[in-house]
């Protein structure tokens, strides 16, 4: 009985922590997908799966890294499903040309987001986990199931790549917000 009570209290505590961090997970999912609805779905899926499998979480302090791992799997599943089905309806929804989006792509923020999404999945995952989730390298290692050394090398190459992409910004889009990021030969 005491065990059941403790278990229920633990689940409640973990659920609360998940809820409290929902916006951070959403931000991460958005940085991967660039789509608010998809990001919301990913967070929802990951949260539901996490809630259903708290028993398999061995260390409660790793809750966020563990949930990010689940969410990444959800995202990979989504990408795979999309490739498998190649639903024309879905494609037309996702790929529709949106004047509002096209206009906003002109500003710095959108440009940086686009550059991040142009990175390879490996690089993007590490950068977003470190910069947006503010994970330690150890937590990133746990989330992505890779050694810390690999986290460091991917982060290094990813940032170098991001720097190059940002430096290729067309002159018309250059703003005072980004005066220092220029390619130096």
């Amino acid at each position: 009985m005491s065990f059941m009570f403790k278990n229920r209290a633990r689940h409640k505590k973990l659920s609360r922590q998940l809820c409290e961090n929902r916006n951070r997970f959403y931000k991460l999912a958005y940085s991967w997908s660039g789509d608010s609805m998809l990001a919301d779905d990913l967070v929802q899926d990951a949260t539901q799966k996490a809630l259903a499998s708290f028993d398999s979480l061995k260390d409660d302090s790793k809750l966020q890294a563990w949930t990010c791992q689940i969410m990444l799997n959800c995202y990979r599943d989504w990408l795979r499903r999309r490739k498998e089905t190649l639903d024309i309806d879905e494609l037309s929804l996702i790929g529709n040309s949106n004047p509002q989006r096209e206009l906003s792509s002109a500003d710095t923020t959108q440009f940086v987001r686009n550059c991040i999404r142009q990175l390879s999945e490996n690089h993007r995952n590490v950068i977003t986990l470190v910069d947006l989730m503010e994970f330690s390298y150890e937590e990133v290692s746990l989330s992505l199931d890779i050694p810390v050394g690999t986290v460091m090398s991917r982060l290094c190459r990813g940032r170098a790549q991001l720097k190059l992409l940002l430096a290729d910004r067309p002159p018309s889009q250059t703003s005072a917000a980004n005066p220092g990021l220029r390619r130096v030969k």
């Binding site: 710095t108 923020t109 940086v112 987001r113 991040i116 950068i127 977003t128 910069d131 947006l132 940032r159 991001l162 720097k163 940002l166 980004n178 990021l181």
Partner: peptide, 8 residues
């Protein structure tokens, strides 16, 4: 670069 990512 890090701050730019966070800001975005």
């Amino acid at each position: 670069l890090k701050e730019l990512t966070q800001h975005a």
